[in-house]
Design a binder for these strands. Structure first.
Lengths: 250, 250
DNA sequence: GACAAAGTTTATGTCAGACAAATAGATCAA
DNA sequence: TTGATCTATTTGTCTGACATAAACTTTGTC
């Protein structure tokens, strides 16, 4: 149609890169880093835009994300404030990731473990009682992949995550499934901690096997117990990893 | 300074209302309503803007929210697609609210109950073991408010929610605290279901008392048991409410 | 001087339009 | 047929203006 845009308004602009979600990352990391503590009001959108070398639109998009995750709130004239951490949605994968780069990963790792020991045995019980054959096949496939990974911790990690996630998924409960995604993210972040004991992953294979067998045999009580045992060992591995970190850093 | 904005470009525009988060609501409800099923690509941002009578910026902001919650994903040229429900963050309060207006609230209500019976007894146990006196005082205050509410279900509901939430908060575990917010939202949504039995709320008061006493006495095992009992009764109430609904609607 | 009404200031919220970048699909060449 | 190129279209980013709301200031009155 009409190509009558006779006026070129914007300057040539040598490069207009695509920032993507890294803008939200940048701001979020400064928030968790304590640059603007809880209750503080952060700079105006225009100031942030200038500082980051972006348009106000892009900054607004990032701030909108953080608002959607319960980290910020903003009102006209007052500005944008940091909400108390209690209100942040810690079960959101991004929030979890951002908060991970915090001082106290140890406590977070232990809190995560506490959550797992609450949720996963129960999920195991439900899965043993009501999972479909297809669901169980997915769990079994993850187990086989763990077995095939041998003693390599890096190759072992992926199927390991998938194994635990598949059990959550097998419950058919959307809340537990979402929780599975959260737990998987957290595990991925804490990978370094859980594999400081070189032989540990491989040693856990028989316990995974016990879990799988119990689910396959449709024995809920046994499945719960097997998962409790597995997580008990996992937790002690992580705790040993933590104390090793504490010992090596002055 | 220079007030040299000699050209008024935009038309007078009789009213430019503030849409706020209702835009995200509007789009999200159409998504969960099935207008665009999983995997489908929804109209372009410009089309949506025209249809809703908004600027593209506002539509983009709403879509950005839904992306942040794992409901949508978009790429240039391809458009914006609906992700599989498995990937939605069901633990997000907004997503939960949107999904509630779905056909099958019953199943969601039961899934929620399943989650509660997993999480709350365990949280109770932890709270009894490690809550601070301040934490317990908050729980007790909620209990007193429940008592003061008497037999009025509406007045009873608020403190009831606060009671359960306070127990989750007393664990000091950020994940459980966030889960508390999710559960509270879900309970608020299912309020109608849980109070179809007029006398039910008041009857649960002694059970809440048992929970509080066990936490106060620092007896984790008893606290867990008391919460299990309470939730058992709650679930049967809800189930009766559900069958009543099913019976009354053809 | 105290206090309430009106004006000012300033931050977010909304709108409009122009590019920029990416990519699915069509076109064209070997 | 197949592979490279071109085109069209959609999201992504930038710019600038105006609207709205609320804290702050001024002003007018008693």
């Amino acid at each position: 149609m009409s190509d009558q845009y006779s006026s070129k308004i914007t300057t040539p602009m040598p490069s207009r890169r695509r920032a993507g979600p890294s803008v939200a990352d940048a701001i979020a990391l400064r928030v968790v880093g304590g640059e603007w503590p809880e209750g503080a009001v952060l700079p105006t959108e225009i100031e942030l835009a200038e500082e980051l070398g972006l348009a106000r639109t892009s900054v607004r998009e990032a701030l909108g994300n953080l608002k959607a995750k319960g980290m910020l709130v903003s009102r006209p004239k007052t500005g944008t404030r940091v909400l108390p951490r209690i209100q942040w949605n810690m079960l959101d994968e991004d929030v979890l990731r951002w908060c991970w780069s915090d001082q106290n990963r140890e406590r977070t790792a232990l809190h995560l473990m506490q959550l797992r020991r609450i949720v996963e045995p129960a999920a195991c019980e439900i899965a043993a009682a009501s999972a479909s054959d297809t669901d169980i096949a997915v769990i079994e496939r993850a187990y086989r992949a763990m077995d095939a990974a041998g003693a390599d911790p890096v190759a072992f990690a992926g199927p390991d995550l998938e194994f635990h996630r598949a059990i959550l998924s097998a419950t058919g409960n959307p809340f537990l499934i979402s929780l599975g995604a959260t737990i998987e993210t957290a595990l991925r972040l804490s990978f370094e901690l859980s594999t400081r004991q070189p032989g540990a992953p491989r040693k856990s294979l028989p316990m995974h096997r016990d879990v799988l067998d119990a689910i396959w045999a449709r024995k809920p009580a046994e499945a719960r117990l097997a998962m409790e045992t597995l997580l008990g060992v996992t937790e002690s591995n992580i705790q040993r990893g933590l104390s090793a970190v504490a010992a090596s850093s002055p």
